[in-house]
């Protein structure tokens, strides 16, 4: 369980990082918090020729909020995000979901950008970023581009990032008033990977009519699964029957795998139950009664 031989570069700026990525192309692999990559190295599942360690690129570790939204630098540690007062106050869904990532010791090292770029099928942050309609900024020596969260994770452990691109930050828009949120997860033990997790956001207008609702599931397939709620919740004041219908839609939207942790049937069951619980809580927090 020792990592294979690799060469090591430790750039101290975004520019140096981009140059290193351009130099090594597919032979280079970015190392951020290392909480997923280093296990893969130790188990010899990954054998990059060169590790490009961005832990000294301090310009990538920041959390900035303004009226329009929240920008999170890629090297922001998950624990720092979780403890950030503005995140807790204005984007509590992010803080609540991040609390489910591993254990504190993992979150002390694990980064926001690393979690997104790794795109584990049971990871919390890719699902939550999808629910929040986030936009990822990536760059290389050829320039910068923005990728909406819905286009970012394309398959199992696969994102829209090119081998020479660096994930720099993720932007999360401000939430409208009267938006409720919830994150529900079931895992074998706290800190384990999610068997199924659900992120929900519900926005009501002054009359209590649902104007927007988002539901994203993770742990149910190769990528996070968004559920279309236009036929069930959006456009009317939420009722228990509408929530039940939305939860049925969530169950119908997933085609989860069976593995050593849980059979597909149990995951399908969890998809419905967690969707119902998350939507119910989100509606309450938005000021509705369900």
């Amino acid at each position: 369980m020792k990592p294979p031989v690799f060469d090591y570069r430790a750039p101290v700026s975004v520019e140096e990082t981009q140059q290193a990525l351009a130099e090594y192309q597919a032979d280079g692999k970015l190392l951020a918090g290392g909480q997923s990559l280093v296990p893969m190295l130790n188990m010899r599942l990954a054998r990059p020729a060169v590790l490009i360690d961005i832990n000294r690129v301090t310009e990538l570790a920041f959390v900035r909020a303004d009226d329009g939204g929240l920008t999170i630098g890629a090297l922001t540690r998950q624990q720092a995000l979780l403890e950030h007062p503005t995140v807790q106050e204005r984007w509590p869904l992010l803080a609540e979901a991040t609390r489910h990532i591993g254990h504190r010791t993992i979150r002390n090292r694990g980064t926001v950008g690393g979690s997104l770029a790794h795109a584990d099928p049971a990871a919390e942050l890719p699902a939550v970023m999808l629910a929040l309609d986030a936009v990822v900024t990536v760059s290389s020596t050829r320039g910068e581009r923005q990728i909406p969260a819905r286009d970012f994770v394309v398959d199992y452990l696969t994102t829209a990032l090119e081998p020479t691109e660096l994930l720099r930050s993720v932007w999360v828009p401000a939430l409208p008033p009267r938006t409720g949120w919830a994150f529900q997860e079931v895992s074998r033990r706290h800190g384990d990977f999610a068997l199924v997790a659900v992120a929900a956001l519900v926005t009501l207008d002054a009359a209590g009519v649902c104007t927007d609702a988002r539901l994203v599931l993770t742990g149910v397939g190769p990528t996070p699964v968004p559920v279309d709620l236009r036929q069930t919740l959006i456009g009317a004041a939420p009722s228990p029957a509408a929530v039940a219908a939305a939860a049925e839609a969530a169950q119908a939207a997933v085609d989860p795998p069976s593995d050593v942790h849980a059979p597909a049937e149990y995951r399908r069951h969890l998809a419905r139950v967690l969707a119902r619980r998350a939507l119910t809580t989100a509606i309450e927090r938005a000021g509705g009664t369900e």
């Binding site: 090591y8 290392g34 280093v38 832990n55 993992i106």
Partner: peptide
């Protein structure tokens, strides 16, 4: 040695980290 058991935990600048998931150069 792959970040599951936590038995290699040490404190890095006062924060707990898994020493099997970091390299000495870091």
């Amino acid at each position: 040695e792959h970040g599951v058991c936590g038995n290699c935990t040490v404190l890095l600048d006062g924060q707990s980290v898994r020493a099997c998931l970091m390299f000495a150069v870091q």
